[in-house]
Design a protein around this nucleic acid. Structure first.
Length: 652
DNA sequence: CTTAGTACTC
């Protein structure tokens, strides 16, 4: 009965019962010990162990196992050697503990000392050999064994599978006398982990039952490798799902750009009574961050507070990032302040957060706090610090930090840091110096570095250098249309339509991918997506949006706003250009926000690409004439529009 | 007592 209470994780009931027992023998004491151990309470187990009148092998072994479970292997060893009589089980438990700590040599020594070995003991050792990749020795033991069970066979199969020898694994798998779900799954994972997806799926189809772990593996592997549909089908076809199943599917959706579906799954999972757990929180918070879905984010946060992960640094950093990405720096900071002990990552989350919002000063203040609280900055910290300087035009300070990171903090600048510095110079208009830095870099510049230079060229109209940078990027990322589009904008603003035309032909000839611009806004817990361009739009409320845009257009023209045609690719007449601009996705989303977001609340709009220049100036004016605060997150950073100004000071 | 998984935060 005591054991039963422990089994159902009711240690308190078990103790009560134990205390009431009129007569206790060694066996009853032992069930107390093993019960405590099963519930992770070693200290309590030890107390019982110390007071019991007589101890047998089982008492000792349970104690040893308890210490191993809690990672206190040294204590376990001490007890093991103090043990008066050891049986096969005690030896095996101890060896298992050493193997768990990757102390293979010690484990082997014990194994050789063992007076009697049974199937389990040898299987245990085989598994040890496999873990360290010594397959031939494992096989030797395996071949010499007088008896083998399913465990032994499966251990050997999985040993080969994990070490990349999938075909040998398969041969063994074929001849083994009986297979259970673990054997099948081990074989399956051999295929998935070596990327042999076709064979993996064939094996999966051939399985007599679709076991949960195997399904989870298929969902994760196929989903992440891009076959989201197949993952979905397996997921939907499952009769039983565990936490891992939900997490796998949510992660796949999050990673593969099905954020809304991920949110839906999260809701569905709760409805079906599955407990929220660590990985599901991480995934869902990432979803909220990439959608910038503040409403959902807040809801998840509320759930988090009621969970056991509330105090976890890891989760808190994700939470901070979520609020940053949703444009709510106040909440991000509040959580940040709540943790007296912060790790580098948490400091970094806050620094990069401020930096992405263009709040250079605040980023640097946090950085100084970090240093004075004794935390060593790392390479990520300096990406945040340098880009903070860049966004706020602090060239001198930027260089100071760049030097200091090498000398004072012993962080070698990587390519990302050079990219920041190129950006810093470029933004400040010192484009030629930026180019010099690119040439002086100790490593080969990548597309990001060239991209930073290109951005500078655009802002300061350096056509020659821009052409050069675009050529470089084209070599490194032949499929990326972004730089071409940017260059053609530059040509267009100079009225060089012939060059625009040539460039467009080039784009078509190289079959480069142009990412369609998408903007979205969250209204009443629903995310509304808008695709731009001259399409009609698919939003059900399109008519009132169009009306709003027309109204805005009128007001803007009255205030003297003149659409900047240079941001449209085509050489069309003025009127059509304006029209096409009017329907850029960010404007649609802003218009919708004006219609739906209550007065006094900031309008938060997200865009997957960089905000277009015309939209940027238009939104500045919209913010002014409507008196609303508009926060736009584009692919690079945040823009806070208020009273006709933007926090980026027109550099982005 | 031994075999398959689970956690990508700046």
């Amino acid at each position: 009965m005591v054991a039963a209470y422990f089994e159902s994780h009711k240690p308190r009931d078990a103790v009560l019962l134990f205390d009431q027992m009129p007569q206790r023998n060694t066996v009853s004491f032992n069930s107390m010990i093993s019960g405590y151990v099963k519930n992770g309470m070693v200290a309590e187990a030890r107390k019982v162990f110390d007071v019991m009148p007589e101890r047998n092998v089982v008492s000792w072994t349970s104690m040893v196992r308890g210490y191993i479970q809690e990672g206190m292997v040294d204590e376990a060893e001490r007890l093991f050697w103090a043990m008066p009589h050891k049986n096969v089980v005690s030896w095996t438990v101890m060896i298992g503990g050493l193997l768990k700590e990757s102390r293979f040599e010690d484990a082997k020594k014990l194994f050789d000392m063992m007076p009697v070995k049974d199937v389990v003991a040898v299987t245990n050792m085989i598994s040890g050999y496999c873990q360290v990749g010594r397959l031939d020795e494992a096989r030797e033991l395996f071949d010499e064994m007088p008896m083998r069970n399913v465990f032994t066979w499966t251990t050997m199969v999985s040993g080969y599978a994990k070490n990349g020898r999938v075909d040998v694994a398969r041969k063994l798998f074929e001849v083994m006398p009986g297979r259970n779900e673990v054997s099948w799954t081990a074989m399956l994972m051999g295929y998935t982990q070596s990327g042999r997806m076709k064979e993996a799926f064939e094996l999966f189809e051939a399985m007599p039952m679709k076991w949960v772990v195997a399904c989870n593996e298929i969902i994760t592997r196929f989903g992440l490798s891009g076959e989201v549909n197949r993952a979905r089908m397996v997921f939907e076809g499952m009769k039983e799902r565990d936490e891992g199943t939900w997490n796998a599917m949510i992660k796949v959706c999050e990673r593969k750009g099905f954020e809304l579906e991920a949110l839906g799954l999260f809701v569905r999972m709760q409805r079906e009574g599955v407990e929220l757990n660590f990985p599901s929180f991480i995934s869902v918070l990432s979803v909220c961050a990439s959608l910038a879905s503040l409403d959902h984010g807040r809801q998840v946060h509320a759930r988090l507070v009621r969970s056991e992960f509330d105090q976890d640094l890891y989760v808190a950093s994700v939470l901070i990032t979520m609020y940053v990405k949703c444009g709510d720096l106040v909440r991000a900071k509040r959580i940040f302040n709540r943790f007296p002990f912060k790790d580098v990552v948490m400091w970094n989350s806050m620094i990069t957060g401020y930096s992405q919002h263009g709040l250079g000063e605040d980023a640097l203040i946090v950085f100084r706090d970090m240093c004075s609280s004794g935390i060593q900055p790392d390479e990520v910290t300096f990406i945040g610090v340098l880009s903070a300087c860049s966004y706020s035009g602090k060239v001198k300070e930027g260089f100071k930090f760049f030097e200091a990171m090498k000398c004072t903090y012993q962080v070698e600048p990587g390519i990302e840091h050079y990219a920041c510095m190129v950006d810093l110079l470029g933004r400040a208009g010192r484009v030629d110096e930026a180019m010099e830095l690119v040439e002086k870099m100790p490593m080969e510049p990548d597309a990001i570095v060239w991209g930073a230079l290109l951005g500078a060229c655009r802002n300061h109209m350096k056509l020659d250098l821009a052409e050069f940078a675009v050529e470089k990027i084209a070599k490194l990322e032949p499929k990326n249309a972004g730089p071409y589009v940017l260059l053609s904008h530059m040509y267009a603003s100079r009225g060089r339509w012939r060059d625009v035309e040539v460039l467009r032909k080039k784009i078509n000839a190289r079959s480069v991918v142009k990412f369609p611009g998408v903007s979205w806004i969250e209204v009443e817990k629903k995310v509304h997506m808008f695709t731009g361009g001259d399409s009609k739009g698919h939003h059900p409320e399109q008519p009132i949006i169009t009306k709003m845009l027309e109204k805005l257009g009128g007001i803007l023209r009255e205030t003297g706003y003149c659409p900047d045609g240079s941001f449209v690719l085509h050489d069309v007449d003025e009127e059509e250009k304006t029209h096409s601009l009017g329907y850029h996705s960010e404007k649609l989303a802003v218009a919708y926000g004006l219609l739906k977001v209550p007065e006094g609340m900031p309008i938060r709009v997200m865009k997957n690409l960089r905000v277009c220049g015309d939209c940027h100036s238009a939104i500045k004016l919209i913010a002014k004439v409507t008196g609303r605060e508009i926060i736009l997150r584009d692919a690079n950073r945040f823009h806070h529009f208020k009273d006709g100004h933007c926090s980026c000071k027109d550099f982005w």
